[in-house]
């Protein structure tokens, strides 16, 4: 149980948690996100796309790590590419990068608490928040183990713990299920549904089945543009028996991708 602050219960003054208009973001010199329009509210959003489609660049821009090269990006009501309060937006963000960097000598608890400090959580709330985050990812028994002693799956869960420690309103998870065993993936889906009650969760993954199982909304990008946004059933409906894939969802994904490459947008 935790105390809910007035700020958390205050009504939002923005229509969309994430709102991108003609967003352009560079990865080095390459324009990896090129004129992308996107609107997201609370719920679990699965981000699909082939390698090089711009998923990670988009995630990095949403995480405010990369500054947009063009267009408009508003997160939690703050124009993060322009004159908005970047610091205010970041307080409401949670981010697990594709390559999760950590201090190997820190314990899980120490690292999650440090991340809570970086997220400017009130000092007195940090120990409790860290404990709750660690419990939610099922790492309670390893809370005081050094990060360098964790397995790949445990590290990923520690990464999720740091991302959710501040109860973010926008949670960005880039390849969060890498290294998780099937049982942990099921638990993770459950966690996503739980988080999505109060948050806008964006999960970037290659695993179409994860998206279908856990996401209320599916996004698909190709060559830096959004080529599909809809629910899982709509994705499945796009697939036909002749499309590549072992499941209806994968066939839907293949069909959409083929269509996008041929110049069409769903």
């Amino acid at each position: 149980m935790r105390t809910i602050s007035a700020a958390e219960t205050a009504p939002a003054t923005y229509a969309w948690s994430v709102h991108a208009e003609q967003l352009k973001v560079k990865a080095g010199r390459h324009l990896a996100v090129d004129g992308l329009d996107l609107r997201m509210q609370n719920g679990v959003h699965g981000l699909l796309g082939p390698n090089g489609a711009g998923k990670t660049t988009l995630m990095r821009a949403l995480a405010t790590v990369l500054r947009p090269a063009g267009g408009k990006l508003t997160i939690l009501g703050q124009d993060v590419g322009g004159r908005g309060n970047l610091r205010q937006a970041r307080r409401g963000l949670g981010y697990l990068p594709q390559e999760f960097g950590f201090y190997p000598r820190f314990t899980v608890r120490e690292f999650v608490e440090y991340m809570a400090w970086l997220k400017e959580m009130p000092k007195h709330t940090i120990p409790g928040a860290a404990q709750r985050a660690i419990e939610r990812v099922g790492l309670t028994t390893r809370a005081d183990a050094r990060m360098k002693t964790l397995s790949g799956g445990m590290l990923r869960r520690a990464g999720i713990a740091q991302a959710i420690v501040n109860n973010p309103l926008v949670l960005l998870l880039d390849e969060p299920t890498v290294g998780l065993d099937p049982e942990q993936r099921l638990d993770f889906r459950e966690l996503l549904r739980d988080l999505a009650v109060d948050s806008c969760v964006l999960v970037s993954t290659h695993l179409v089945e994860d998206v279908v199982a856990a996401c209320t909304d599916v996004l698909m990008v190709n060559e830096g543009r959004l080529v599909f946004q809809g629910d899982a059933n709509t994705l499945i409906d796009h697939g036909g028996p002749n499309d590549a894939g072992d499941s209806p969802a994968e066939r839907g994904y293949s069909a959409l991708l083929r269509r996008a490459r041929n110049g069409g947008v769903a």
Binding site: R90, G101, K119
Partner: peptide, 18 residues
């Protein structure tokens, strides 16, 4: 070597405080 730059870059705590 800890490659935490990416993770920390998206946090609100100002650089000078870190």
């Amino acid at each position: 070597r800890a490659t935490v730059t990416e993770l920390f870059a998206g946090t609100p705590r100002p650089q000078h405080q870190r």
